[in-house]
Design a protein around this nucleic acid. Structure first.
Lengths: 279, 279
DNA sequence: TGTGCTTACGCTGCTCGTAACAATG
DNA sequence: CATTGTTACGAGCAGCGTAAGCACA
């Protein structure tokens, strides 16, 4: 059987035009190349070169052989790449989410249920998530509504309710609840990367100027030191310390109350059983 | 780089299910297979097997690896086959003809012009010839009419005229010429494998019973020893000895006079120059 | 106890690089 | 005489098979 190494030599000779140069590029001695090509011809049982005493170049069969060789060698390299990628996916639990809170929660649960797996989490637009789930980029996605179709199953696993976080100087601090519309028109602090909540804010509060913060600690500093209103949620309040100088007021709108669902492919139900049991 | 041999081992293990059986089939010792598979895993940088102390079988990645391996190995084997076939075609001058006489003539010319080439000659139906020329099964074909299109060029190179060969007892022996129609209705001796002439005979002499002979020497014996009419041609008479007891009469019909043309692909014009010059 | 995989070990022979040689321009 | 390809030669080690070890049914 021919060897891949011989094919690599062949391709190098095609590229560098003389055996000497090819040998140099391959970091082998030139006689090795001579023999390698001789042996390849023997094994293929066809001549691949025209030879004169100190010059060698491809004949037509040789040129055809190069084409085959390139394909085979690239296939072999592809094989390695694809297997590594496949193996990586086997050991990765990939979660895509429409919002940060349920992602954080689910991430914890997954790392408990599958301690040997790498966990990969992302916040993305909902249409991207659905495509990704079907294409198996994601093992599981988190969505704010449920589904049940031929491929996909879903279960609810947490709720999140938004609140206004107002400075004590704010005129609304004595209200029992406030609507988004009532608050619209001010300037507000807002974290970036909050998934579908961001879209909701833009829609329901079109006249508000959101001062978007990428850095979590900067955001909290500003909440503490400024009189700008901001949002918070019951999940955030459970997991993070609240500043003292703020009044928390419920939001009336339906849109500020989300129920989150895990979506997963039915074909993965068995593998996911232990996790689903936890939720 | 992985080796094709390792992939062959992998495929054998897939087929025979235990290393021992695969090793036996491959005519190698079993430890060689153990090491070969270990090394393959190392080089691919992924585990391919589940192992217990005395049992080994594929994991999911391994099954995928087998698929890749099968493709690569079969490609490598294909490479050899295709190169051999390509090389063979390079050294073969293949002629297809509609009739035997011009084929014999052209065959001689070709073997003079390309003494290093293998010459392959066939008599086939004309539509088969044309397809074969386009598909490069034939280097050149011989047809009874000319052509000139985008791909194909043709030149005339010989004529052949048929004659009746009659026993001296035949009533027509004093005629200057006879038509096919006049002779129709008798029994006649005919060689097989005479290409398009056969079709012509059947069309122009529908009431004649042709006694077809496969063996050339039997045909000549019958011509000599029987009183059955037969055909001959100016080309045949030039190259073969004529029996004494026969009278040769020209045939009137156009259909009994053929001009033969070499057809070849324009792209081959350069390669064929020395031959074309001879014709 | 037989089957199957892995590891240990020693030997063979393959393949490497160096060197010498031949041809070419 | 610099460049290139082929052949000769000796050394090193890669990979082979045998044998021993270990687990399992």
């Amino acid at each position: 059987m021919i060897e891949l190494e011989q094919l690599i030599h062949l391709i190098a000779f095609d590229e560098y035009e003389t055996l000497s140069k090819a040998a140099e590029q391959l970091h082998i001695s030139q006689p090795v190349l001579t023999r390698s090509m001789q042996k390849l011809e023997e094994e293929l049982e066809v001549p691949l070169f025209y030879r004169t005493k100190n010059r060698i170049h491809f004949n037509e069969t040789g040129l055809l052989a190069v084409k085959h060789a390139k394909r085979i060698v690239s296939d072999a390299k592809d094989m390695k790449k694809q297997l590594i990628e496949f193996d990586r996916k086997l050991h990765t639990f990939s979660i895509g989410s429409c919002a940060p809170a349920p992602l954080q929660y689910l991430g914890q649960k997954v790392s408990q249920s599958y301690p040997q797996k790498t966990i990969l989490t992302e916040i993305r637009d909902m249409n991207v998530l659905i495509t990704g789930l079907k294409e198996k980029t994601y093992t599981m996605i988190i969505m704010p509504y449920s589904i049940e179709d031929e491929q996909i199953e879903s279960i609810s696993f947490m709720k999140e309710n938004l609140f206004f976080s107002l400075p004590k100087s704010h005129p609304f601090i004595h209200k029992k609840a406030i609507s988004l519309k009532e608050m619209d028109g001010e300037r507000m602090l807002l974290m970036s990367n909050i998934g579908f909540w961001h879209q909701m804010h833009k829609e329901k509060m079109p006249n508000t100027k959101f001062l978007i913060q990428n850095d979590r600690s900067v955001f909290y500093d500003l909440v503490e030191l400024s009189t700008l209103p901001s949002f918070t949620s019951d999940y955030v309040m459970k997991t993070e310390q609240m500043p003292q100088n703020r009044v928390i007021i419920p939001i009336e709108d339906e849109a500020a109350h989300a129920t989150f669902y895990c979506w997963y492919l039915k074909e993965n139900e068995v593998t996911l059983k232990s996790l689903l049991y936890q939720l």
